[in-house]
C-alpha cells in the first residue's frame, strides 16, 4: 500500500473527459513522474491531489486518510507540499520572511493569533529558517526582496519553503518549464540531492523527457485523461503506446 493512492478518479468539464478512471499507487520514498502530451489531464490530476478541484467520482487517499473534500491548506497540513509551474512566493517579502512563514505554518497550524508576540523571540523558527536557507545556498540573499531574485533562485526559494515543512509528499508541476538547459540541470541536481538526503516521496509532472528520465523511478503516461502505461523509465522509452500518444499515430 502506497503513501498516495488514487482510485477510479473521473473528472468531466462539460463534454470533455479530463480524467477517466485514473488509478495510481505511489509507494513512499519514490520519485514518480507523470508525463503525457498537452491536454492529457496532468494538471487536472495535480489540482485534484491538492484539493483545488473536486473530481466527479473516485477517491484519493494520502497516508491512509482521505484527501478529497479538504481545503488546500488542510491538505498541506497533512503533509503534501506543492511547487508551482511559475514559482509562487511572497514576492513583496524578503527571502528570510518567505522562509519564516512555512515554519510558522508547520508549528502553529493553519491559524494562530500571535499578534503581540515578538518575532525576535522566535529563536527556534529563526534557526530553522536560517538552516534551510544555508542548505539551499541562499543565506547571503536573506535580506533581498523576493521579487528581485532571479528565476532560478525563486524556484530554489519555493522549494526550500516547501522542504522546510518536512512534507511527506512533494508535488512538482513542471519544475523546469521555461528554464535554460544549465538551470534545468541545476534543478535536477537540487532535486536529486533533496531526494537523497530527505527520502521525500515526489510526484513530478513534466514535459521535458531529460528531466523525467534523470529523476523518476517510475513513470505514468497519461493520454486523454487516462493512464496508458506505468513502468520504469527504461521500459517507457521504447514503449509503442507512448510513442503513439506523443506522435498521434502508430509509429
Amino acid at each position: 500500500m502506497g503513501i498516495l493512492e488514487v482510485t477510479n478518479v473521473n473528472k468531466r468539464f462539460g463534454g470533455l473527459q479530463a480524467l477517466g478512471d485514473v488509478n495510481l499507487d505511489i509507494p513512499a520514498g519514490t520519485v514518480h513522474a507523470i508525463i503525457g502530451p498537452n491536454g492529457a489531464g496532468k494538471s487536472t490530476l495535480l489540482n485534484v491531489l491538492v484539493g483545488k478541484l473536486i473530481p466527479d467520482t473516485g477517491t484519493v487517499m494520502f497516508d491512509g486518510k482521505p484527501v478529497l473534500g479538504r481545503k488546500p491548506y488542510e491538505i498541506n497540513q497533512m503533509g503534501i507540499s506543492r511547487v508551482f509551474q511559475t514559482p509562487e512566493i511572497f514576492s513583496d517579502l524578503t527571502v528570510f520572511e518567505n522562509m519564516l512563514i512555512p515554519c510558522f505554518a508547520k508549528r502553529d497550524g493553519s491559524f494562530r493569533m500571535h499578534a503581540l508576540e515578538s518575532m525576535a523571540r522566535e529563536k527556534d523558527i529563526i534557526g530553522k529558517a536560517e538552516h534551510m536557507l544555508s542548505d539551499v545556498n541562499m543565506i547571503d540573499k536573506r535580506n533581498m526582496v523576493a521579487s528581485s531574485l532571479s528565476r532560478g533562485d525563486k524556484r530554489r526559494l519555493e522549494m526550500a519553503m516547501c522542504l522546510v515543512q518536512e512534507p511527506k509528499l512533494l508535488l512538482l508541476d513542471e519544475p523546469t518549464a521555461g528554464m535554460a538547459r544549465a538551470d534545468t540541470n541545476n534543478t535536477i541536481e537540487l532535486l536529486k540531492e533533496i531526494h537523497a538526503s530527505r527520502e521525500i516521496t515526489m510526484v513530478i509532472i513534466e514535459h521535458d523527457m531529460h528531466v523525467v528520465f534523470s529523476l523518476a523511478k517510475r513513470i505514468t503516461v497519461l493520454a486523454q485523461g487516462t493512464p496508458l502505461v506505468e513502468d520504469t523509465p527504461e521500459n517507457i522509452k521504447g514503449h509503442p503506446k507512448v510513442k503513439e500518444a506523443y506522435l498521434g499515430e502508430a509509429a
Partner: peptide, 27 residues
C-alpha cells in the same frame, strides 16, 4: 507590536500571495 509580530508578517503575506498562503497550510 502587530507590525513586528509573526501575525503582522502573515498579514503582509496575504497581501502578496494568497495562493502560496493556502498551499503553505495557512488559512
Amino acid at each position: 507590536r502587530i507590525f513586528r509580530s509573526p501575525f503582522g508578517t502573515m498579514l503582509r503575506a496575504i497581501k502578496t500571495n494568497q495562493t502560496r498562503m493556502n498551499y503553505t497550510g495557512l488559512n
